[in-house]
Design a protein around this nucleic acid. Structure first.
Length: 482
RNA sequence: GUCCCCAUCGUCUAGACGGCCUAGGACACCGCGCUUUCAAUGCGGCAACACGGGUUCGAAUCCCGUUGGGGACGCCA
């Protein structure tokens, strides 16, 4: 156990499958992964599913899916705590035999009562447990007679302190700690026990987890001591909060990692964004590859203050990654997105040209099936705002058919010819070209904003351009002026 | 209520030994340029050391207090 392996860094991500992988958990996993990779160590996945009521198989799958999407491959596991119950029991027995724990025969609701009282009583110290005073003889006899009991850790007097790699020295008075349960009366071990037992067992060298565990750490340290095991390094990560500075929750919208996948974010962008939440390389760099991140990551760069999860910057990262991606990859992603949205894409030949036009304008993959839908299907609507802005001139009713027939006669239909035709029509009519251009943009894309109009014509092709002009003509005729 | 922790622009943050900080970068936002709209891009702008005391020749950086925020106090994890 010790010896040859003692230098290898071993970290773990230990989610409980009572929900999907949320951004906070993902960030924790990410930092663990980065730390392991940086040190050439192992990243272990452990599922903490000792809460049988709330845990589910489905959630486990969801968590694995999220980790895979983010590209956080684990080196060992997943280990399931629900399959190691015997192990924890023997760990607890050992503590019990040593006299560092005792059987508690109280009913569970007795403690519930006491708990409801304590904000009123505001006791200095934790409530005492009379079962701690039971003699070994009594205790054993009652246990053997079949009376149900829990096993509680006997918190020793004095103080407990430790050095956290991000928060520094943490110290508490042990008397504020209640004798906590190790094994419930139904025989199922609790979190504090399993986490310590497993971390010892799996040779975890660095416990990197959310700061919500900071005040639980002293209890666990007591357990390490009782077990006679050396302490791992602890590094608690500041929490991720919602824009209202409250703990991130469903109220804040999407908190599940897979929701971001579905909204069209790229895993690399999300990865990069997450890596900068609570950590900084120390300089101004922000666009960082996994490789760079791995090289740069260190616990020293982790800040202490909680971070607000603001999606605007994620959007920016995403658009940057989208822009830098290869056309082939983008094409595949676009096709996947269109398929998922039930859009049948026409003319796959000019797809790459369309990608080129669109890539600097999209912020999310879903933009392909929403605002830029008209680049892939004829089944699109005119954006009401665009109509209001660009189709209001009644003369358009005459100009659009003219343009339609001009393009119909234009055999070349090149970038140059299409532009020349439109501009000369504008000249003859004595109007600004922009007026026509904007209207035609609505005709071709349904939107008020799009890539350069004549380039759009090229990627759509002559026939489609003509058809769409005709469609606009009909639309203008059928719409009563206002 | 008790204990623990945190505190730089709206947001993410840089800011090792206190002086290089009239506090830097990025996102967002606002102008201007480019332009057929948008995006991209270039330039410029707005905007922070929570507050109060110390220590010091000198503090965003150290100490104390206040305020604010978060977390933990379960036979949940």
């Amino acid at each position: 156990m010790t010896g040859i392996m003692h230098k290898e860094v071993r970290v773990r991500f230990a989610p409980s499958p009572t929900g999907y992988l949320h951004v906070g958990g993902a960030r924790t996993a990410l930092f663990n992964w980065l730390f392991a990779r940086h040190h050439g160590g192992k990243f272990i996945l452990r599922i903490e599913d000792t809460d049988f009521v709330r845990s589910s198989e489905e959630m486990v799958e969801g968590i694995l899916e999220g980790l895979r999407w983010l590209g956080l491959a684990w080196d060992e596991g997943p280990y399931f705590q629900s399959r190691r119950l015997e192990h924890y029991r023997s760990f607890a027995d050992r503590i019990l035999k040593q006299g560092n724990a005792y059987r508690c025969f109280c009913k569970t609701d007795e403690h519930a009562d006491r708990k409801s009282e304590y904000p009123v009583n505001a006791p200095e110290d934790a409530v005492a447990h009379e079962c701690a005073e039971l003699t070994g003889e009594d205790s054993r006899r009652r246990a053997e007679s079949g009376e149900p009991f829990a096993i509680r850790f006997k918190v020793p007097p004095d103080k407990t302190s430790f050095h956290d790699r991000v928060f520094g020295k943490i110290e508490i008075e042990n008397k504020i700690l209640e004798d906590f349960v190790l094994i419930r009366s139904d025989g199922i071990p609790t979190y504090h026990l399993v986490v310590v037992a497993d971390d010892i067992d799996m040779g975890i060298t660095h416990v990197i987890r959310g700061a919500d565990h900071l005040s639980n750490t002293p209890k666990q340290i007591l357990l390490y001591r009782a077990a006679g095991s050396p302490l791992p390094d602890f590094a608690h990560l500041p929490l991720i909060l919602g824009p209202d500075k409250q703990r991130l929750s469903k109220r804040h919208g999407a908190t599940s990692v897979m929701a971001y996948a579905e909204m069209g974010y790229l895993p690399d962008a999300f990865f990069n964004f997450l890596s900068l939440l609570g950590w900084s390389p120390g300089d101004d760099r922000e666009m960082l590859t996994r490789r760079e991140l791995t090289q740069l990551f260190s616990l020293e760069g982790v800040g202490k203050a909680d971070a607000v999860f603001g999606p605007e910057k994620l959007d920016w990262f995403n658009s940057r990654y989208l822009r830098d991606i290869s056309t082939e990859t983008l094409r595949e992603l676009a096709l996947k997105e269109l398929e998922a949205s039930g859009i049948e894409c026409f003319e796959t030949e000019s797809l790459d040209a369309r990608m080129e036009l669109l890539k600097v304008r999209i912020r999310k993959l879903t933009d392909f099936s929403t605002i830029f839908k008209a680049f892939f299907t004829d089944d699109f609507d005119y954006d009401p705002a665009a109509c209001k802005k660009f189709l209001k001139d009644p003369k358009l009713q005459a100009w659009i058919p003219k343009l339609h027939s001009l393009y119909n006669e234009d055999r070349e239909f090149t970038l140059e010819s299409t532009e020349a035709i439109l501009r000369s029509l504008a000249d003859r009519e004595g109007i600004k070209a922009g007026l026509l251009i904007n209207a035609v943009r609505v005709a071709l894309t349904g939107q008020g904003v799009a890539p350069g109009l004549f380039e759009v014509m090229q990627v759509l092709g002559r026939q489609r351009t003509i058809d769409r002009l005709e469609r606009l003509g009909k639309y203008l005729n059928s719409t009563p002026e206002d």
